[in-house]
Design a protein around this nucleic acid. Structure first.
Length: 499
RNA sequence: GGGCCGUUAGCUCAGUGGCAGAGCAUCCGCCUUUUAAGCGGAGGGUCGCAGGUUCAAUUCCUGCACGGCCUACCA
């Protein structure tokens, strides 16, 4: 691997040869008339063995060669698809023919030629003129097994995209999903806004932050773990419907559903509550699925997910009653709840507080079972310092999490807008921080000041974009839907093939 | 963080305590409708890295690096 790469040396030799002949291996521009997919569809009805006088100019990367002596076939790929080229020495002249067949797989060319369909039925372009557009020095992955090495697929995603159709499909779908989401929110009158990534105090979620430092301001800054508190400031400022799609950063472990930087959509809607947000969620996701995939029935592993609204509403209490047999309303203190857990012989880690214990029961016994879209609602107060209490059950909040395929897709609630209550909740969190919970939330005086100026009743929703893309594409790892997932940096070995 | 597994040619993968293998790719020769083109020949390896055991290690042992899966926290 280190030292000289003979395949690269060979290509350098060809590059030098081209330069000797006065050819520029890296020209600036090529005017195309068509892309390959367009040709395929425009000539779909052309019969096998038929020639045309249709002259086209196309460009792309050579991906395969079938050299057959005096005439050869080459495959050309551009951003839209693939088309076959036919090169014949009696059409091109021997010199041009030799030059074309000397080019390597991976090289870019532009060409002009006539459309025809071969006897075997493959639409092709007969090359009349061509030009090298870019010489590749390193070989592409193998042609029919593609690129399998997972590490190389993530580290050199460009090779993965070239070699593996599935990677290309997911990348394109992701873009379409985000675009469809924007279209949906825009159509509902939401205003897209941007808020700080670098924040003097992190907030809006329970997570450890990444810390950085601004030299000129001489102060510590945090990469946002959420944009929630900023978006609510905008609600206070009279922007009644806002959303932001942005990267959040959480200094946590990496898993099949966690990447340290991930994309989140958060939206806030004044005068709405969590019931409205549920409806928004199910309608938005179904609308995106229909627009992007043409259906709301989604294959995911061995399951078929049905995303058509309405989704099931399941209060946490009912869910736990159903899956563990425990009625949390009857065991309202930690000791009572834990003794009942032992009574029921449930195998679950014991937690420090009642709310965390309930959460743990949910994670172990309920969430993995919820395959079809389900809103789990009415969470314990202490896990939700930014959510409004339920009027009839003050130890619970008006909150829900959409679960699909056993995965939390997001989080939403009726936003707490009582500044005095908000201060108390923050103080409780600060207390948790002091007693060793390094994910507890921080007291944000500036945010409380904003709220003291008056905040309307508001519904808020966050959707994990990466997970939504996983569900809609059938990807079973978040790394398949993030083009450049977090990986440990390879230690420098100064091995850049050659030089 | 813990457990299990992987790392062999540019790529995809076999394999063995005793000369390192295949297909694709590359190079040479033949071939004007092929498409995983075909036929004939050739080159290409620090078997992840470092130690140890052994007459001999790519193979067995230990450590390390990178990665994967499971598990724990978070969306």
């Amino acid at each position: 691997m280190e030292g000289i790469n003979p395949l690269r040396e060979e290509r350098l030799r060809k590059l030098a040869l081209l330069r000797e002949r006065g050819l520029d291996p890296y020209p600036t521009k090529f005017e195309r008339t068509h892309q390959s997919a367009q040709l395929q569809s425009e000539h779909a009805s052309l019969a096998a063995g038929t020639e045309t006088q249709t002259r086209v100019r196309i460009a792309g990367r050579l991906t395969a060669r079938r050299l057959m002596g005096g005439a050869s076939f080459l495959d050309l790929r551009d951003g839209s698809g693939r088309i076959q080229l036919h090169a014949a020495s009696d059409k091109l002249g021997q010199e041009q023919y030799d030059l074309l067949t000397m080019l390597d797989i991976g090289d870019f060319i532009g060409l002009e030629g006539l459309i025809f369909r071969t006897r075997k039925g493959e639409l092709s372009v007969r090359v009349e003129k061509f030009q090298l557009l870019s010489k590749a020095l390193l070989p592409l992955p193998e042609k029919w097994h593609g690129l399998q090495d997972v590490e190389m697929r993530y580290r050199q995603r460009y090779l993965d995209l070239l070699a593996n159709e599935e990677s290309r499909r997911i990348a394109i779908l992701r873009s379409k999903i985000v675009s469809a989401m924007r279209r949906y929110l825009d159509s509902q009158g939401f205003l897209e806004v941007e808020t700080p990534t670098l924040q003097p105090l992190y907030g809006g979620a329970t997570a450890r932050p990444f810390t950085t430092y601004h030299n000129d301001l001489e102060q510590t800054l945090y990469l946002r773990i959420s944009d929630e508190l900023y978006l609510k400031r905008l609600i206070i400022g009279g922007l009644d419907k806002v959303y932001e799609i942005c990267k959040d950063f959480r200094n946590e472990g990496i898993s099949w559903k966690h990447n340290p930087e991930f994309t989140m959509m958060e939206c806030y809607w004044a005068y709405a509550d969590y019931q409205d947000m549920m409806q928004l969620t199910e309608e938005m996701v179904a609308s995106i699925a229909k627009e992007v995939l043409g259906t709301t029935s989604i294959k995911f592993g061995e399951h078929t997910l049905e995303l058509t609204p309405p989704w099931k509403r399941l209060p946490m209490r009912d869910a736990l009653l159903q899956y563990t047999g425990i009625d949390i309303d009857k065991y309202r203190t930690l000791p009572e709840l834990q003794s009942e857990i032992k009574q029921q012989k449930l195998s679950v880690d014991l937690q420090k507080t009642w709310g965390q214990q309930v959460d743990e029961l949910m994670k172990v016994f309920v969430e993995p079972k919820l395959i079809q879209p389900t809103f789990i609602m009415n969470h314990p107060l202490e896990l939700s310092p930014l959510a409004k209490r339920k009027a009839d059950a003050p130890q619970l909040v008006e909150r829900f999490e959409p679960l699909v395929a056993g995965m939390e897709l997001g989080n939403a609630f009726s936003e707490l807008n009582d500044p005095l209550d908000q201060r108390e909740r923050f103080l409780a969190q600060e207390e948790m921080l002091r007693t060793g919970d390094d994910e507890a939330q921080r007291l944000d005086e500036d945010f409380i000041t904003a709220m003291e100026h008056g905040m309307p009743p508001t519904g808020g929703l966050g959707i994990g974009i990466d997970r939504l893309v996983m569900i809609l594409t059938g990807a079973t790892s978040i790394r398949e839907v993030i083009l450049f997932p977090a990986l440990r940096t390879v230690k420098a070995k100064s091995e850049t093939a050659g030089e």
